[in-house]
Design a binder for these strands. Sequence first.
DNA 1: CATGAATGAGCGTTCATTCAT
DNA 2: CATGAATGAACGCTCATTCAT
Lengths: 203, 203, 203, 203
Amino acid sequence: MKSAIPPRSERTRQLIIESAAPIFNKKGYAGTSMSDLTTATGLTKGSIYGNFKDKDDVAVHAFQHNIDLIFDFFSKELKAAGSTWDKLLAYPRGFRKIYRMILSYGGCPILNTAVEADDTHAVLRKMAVDVLAKWKNSIISLITDGIDEGVIDPATDAAKSAEILIALMEGGSVLSKVTGEESYMLNAIDMAEEKITDMQRPT
Amino acid sequence: MKSAIPPRSERTRQLIIESAAPIFNKKGYAGTSMSDLTTATGLTKGSIYGNFKDKDDVAVHAFQHNIDLIFDFFSKELKAAGSTWDKLLAYPRGFRKIYRMILSYGGCPILNTAVEADDTHAVLRKMAVDVLAKWKNSIISLITDGIDEGVIDPATDAAKSAEILIALMEGGSVLSKVTGEESYMLNAIDMAEEKITDMQRPT
Amino acid sequence: MKSAIPPRSERTRQLIIESAAPIFNKKGYAGTSMSDLTTATGLTKGSIYGNFKDKDDVAVHAFQHNIDLIFDFFSKELKAAGSTWDKLLAYPRGFRKIYRMILSYGGCPILNTAVEADDTHAVLRKMAVDVLAKWKNSIISLITDGIDEGVIDPATDAAKSAEILIALMEGGSVLSKVTGEESYMLNAIDMAEEKITDMQRPT
Amino acid sequence: MKSAIPPRSERTRQLIIESAAPIFNKKGYAGTSMSDLTTATGLTKGSIYGNFKDKDDVAVHAFQHNIDLIFDFFSKELKAAGSTWDKLLAYPRGFRKIYRMILSYGGCPILNTAVEADDTHAVLRKMAVDVLAKWKNSIISLITDGIDEGVIDPATDAAKSAEILIALMEGGSVLSKVTGEESYMLNAIDMAEEKITDMQRPT
DNA sequence: CATGAATGAGCGTTCATTCAT
DNA sequence: CATGAATGAACGCTCATTCAT
């Protein structure tokens, strides 16, 4: 039984992506140069261009990698949560677990990309928009499930609540990032949890 | 009574600042070139360098200009509001008035700068942090005043509330900007107003 | 009365064009690098790009300069020639005067450009085609004039004769260039003159 | 009787040569990249470098291949021609048969190479010069033979006539190539045939 | 002050070539 | 032999900045 050693090229691609991901996240697309990537990877420009079409291509894969990191984390959190209720709370609670890591990583990649790309880079912007939609839909589904299960007040506006929760968490994260004060993030998380608690079906 | 036409040089500086401000806001510091500024102003590079030390210097003044625009607006809103209570509500209500303008301007300059500058540009980052502190203190003062006046529940955590309000408004604005959906901003504003309403002294 | 000193920029443009013209003619468009041009001019890349849009732009002006050199020469030769007959002969006789200069310049620019550009560079190709058409029309006009004046056999096919004369001179020049043997050019010139002589009206 | 399938390596070499030949002819030596050749052959760079020392080596063999194509064609034409006289006419007549193919192939390889290589590539230049000498000598021999046989005017300058015939055909071909007008080639061929007819021994 | 021509470093990208597998 | 990943120099071009006029 042959163990699955990925081919050399795949390892190089992965090295480039993983090295580039935090750099793009911190310095932005325009602020990151290909030389930054050769320095970080120890590879030559030719090698990077042998594995990716152009800078855009690296940025797209690096951003996707960052998205995957976040989604993998929350997927596990949701899976670990038992009830619909706990799954909904898994979002703010998950942020409480990893916000420090996110901050040291340069802030939330979705928000960083959203801010830089909205007026300058259509492809990255679309990726950010898509992942936000996915996130929002996930919250909406959970709220709907909760209503169906009778644990959430049927009067709850699922879409509105989802947008507010996302705004709180993204807003809190960027403010903590720039000010260096964790309280922004923590208070936003508290508010999000409170908001979820308020959705509870009145007895 | 001072009026006086500003000297020619001052007008040129102002032209550069006002032309540069929306460009930096949309394309970011790294993404904006001095050539972008000559194109926008119709001036030569020499002229810009005659009025500003370097690109940094222009960026700093452009950002300050953007901050001033926002603060001038909210200063008027607060002045127009009668009671402490109305002054507090002037923030979300003000956003409801100008969020469309902000979006077409490239999003909230404070947030845009916070995101780009946090890891790359200490001076701009500090400016963003300072203006956020000023904003937060303004909200804290209003809440404290409200408590003193007996209109706000003394149990209210002023600092925490301020941070949540800011997180909501900045979070809502960036999400509306990138997705193009106004609901993010509007729902965040609703939530902010509701949050303020909840501070009311229980009778 | 102000003497016409061209502005600095015009002089730089001219320096670049005149330096680039023989280089492009010898090494071709693809074979000439911008560094070749900085070396030849003593200027920096930035300076060249300040005066020309891109490499193409330099090449186009350099080629036009080469065309002008040739046309200026033949214009003078034609003007100096008295009769229509002598004007027609001015072409081969002109080549006899300057073929050495052409060879040391890298060969006939029209032919060089025609050969390189036909499958790779539409703009240069069109310029070469246009100048060839102009040359051909000039010969056709002279022959037609000669027929009208009664010095050239009216049975002469003007267009065909023009094309043959051009083919002879261009063919002779490229063969002399590559082989280093002047005889190719000289024999082609002889043939061209003989061909013209044969056009004479039979008495 | 030797037949035998050529070894695998020889077939790969041949594939590379045959694929590269028209590309070099159209885009020139400087304008053709090794990547162009991998695209055209479907092979890897390593494979090409396994069969040829470097780009130069491929170019030399590709050019030789192009020369061979032309010479094979004219060899057959000359063999098929009965008399010395017909053999001499086989050159213009051969061009009349294949000039369209030559044009669609990117023009006459001898001329193309002559033009590009004369100032930049000594090896290719020498090959072009050698093949021109061979061609010229072939014509000279035929004329000499014709004189010996009494069919050609002994006053004919064989070398001069040879150079003129070559100049006509090469000149005509390049002008037709660049302008897209067949008349240049056809008129040059007519002139060449007329020139040959004029060599006939006066009776 | 303003101009505009110039600089030199750096950009993203492609080149011909090599070499372990 | 062939592969494909890697190299490092060079490519065309743009950058922020300077300075004589």
